[in-house]
């Protein structure tokens, strides 16, 4: 597959300038695809219910988009290293349970547990690299571990978010709704770290061409540990943000996030192999999913049964659009 790609790019360099122009346009279109799909969903919402396009409307519709965006970023780090995390959803649930119990009652222990769980993520990265394990199976196993721990921490739905977290998530900035500011911040910070720093390039390179990177003297063990630790960190942030919004927790609260996060990364222009990911795209993908899954369907009077299908359909439509554009790239 990769060989085909390099062959294609070789061909591209020998093409005439007119063809190169068309190629650049196709690339641009492809890069804009995530933003275009978000714009389309927003337009549809505006057309169906103009009143939703307001400060209050956005605060309400995008409320749950913050934890989804954070979980998507977590998944993106794992995908950047050519792995897949099927445990991020139950991990978010576990973090939520700790946030609603320990973090409120005994903040110091709560912080230690959360730091420890990031450490577990880093160890998983090391284990997957050292033993050359399939990340799908390891993280599927871990999803049971996190769910079990979540039930042990909080056997019955309940608990309460710490007051400072509630106050933070209820923050109402002037003019622009909080979720939009938060999404922008998350996207820009991660974009800078992963796309604009030299170690960010190494991290993406560890997914793009691990052999070359290893021969150049970089430690692949370290890159994998860093990528998984970052995934753990953003998983923790996601769980905390989620509990800051819902105010109480439940061991199953994050279960849907595993698949949503993968879908968000792919929607945002991420590729499944080769370290090709886009942090801003991932955030946009998460917003698109958050908007399309529930507000859009409600305004279209489609029963909530079809919420999950809407996610699948959007994923398929965007991927189909990508194929059409890529054909032109050839």
């Amino acid at each position: 597959m990769r060989r085909e790609m390099t062959a294609a790019s070789l061909e591209a360099t020998t093409k005439s300038s007119a063809e190169r122009g068309a190629l650049a346009r196709a690339r641009l279109l492809r890069g804009l695809l995530p933003a275009l799909s978000l714009a389309l969903v927003l337009l549809a919402i505006a057309w169906l219910n103009p009143r939703a396009i307001s400060y209050f409307g956005f605060s309400l519709m995008l409320n749950l988009a913050i934890p989804i965006a954070l979980a998507t970023i977590a998944q993106m780090f794992v995908i950047a290293g050519n792995e897949l995390d099927l445990s991020i959803g139950t991990f978010v649930g576990f973090v939520g349970c700790v946030t609603a119990t320990w973090l409120k009652d005994a903040p110091l222990i709560g912080v230690l547990i959360l730091l420890g769980s990031i450490g577990v993520y880093a160890l998983l990265g090391a284990l997957i690299h050292l033993r050359n394990l399939p990340s799908i199976v390891v993280t599927l196993g871990m999803s049971f571990v996190w769910q079990g721990l979540a039930i042990l921490v909080l056997p019955k739905p309940g608990g309460k978010a710490p007051d400072w977290l509630l106050a933070f998530m209820a923050f109402k900035p002037p003019l622009v709704p909080f979720p939009i500011i938060a999404a922008l911040l998350i996207g820009l910070i991660v974009h800078f770290g992963l796309m604009r720093t030299s170690y960010g390039v190494i991290l993406r390179g560890s997914g793009g061409n691990p052999a070359a990177l290893g021969r150049a003297g970089w430690s692949l063990l370290k890159t994998k540990i860093v990528l998984f630790a970052l995934a753990g960190l953003f998983g923790v942030l996601s769980g905390m943000a989620l509990i800051g919004i819902t105010t109480s927790a439940d061991a199953n609260i994050g279960n849907g996030y595993t698949l949503l996060a993968i879908a968000g990364v792919i929607l945002g222009g991420g590729e499944f192999v080769g370290g090709r990911v886009s942090p801003i795209g991932a955030v946009i993908g998460a917003l698109t999913l958050a908007l399309a899954a529930s507000p859009l369907l409600t305004f279209m009077h489609i029963p909530p049964d079809w919420q999950v299908a809407a996610n699948g359909a959007i994923l398929i439509i965007v991927l189909a659009a990508r194929v059409l554009i890529s054909r032109r790239e050839r």
Binding site: L127, R131, N132, P134, V137, G141, F144, F272
Partner: peptide
Amino acid sequence: RLLLTGLIIVGVITAAGGQKALR
């Protein structure tokens, strides 16, 4: 039960390990 099931699966995979990843 969930915790142990997960740990045992991860443990067995780790012990069996040594192959190229699923993706």
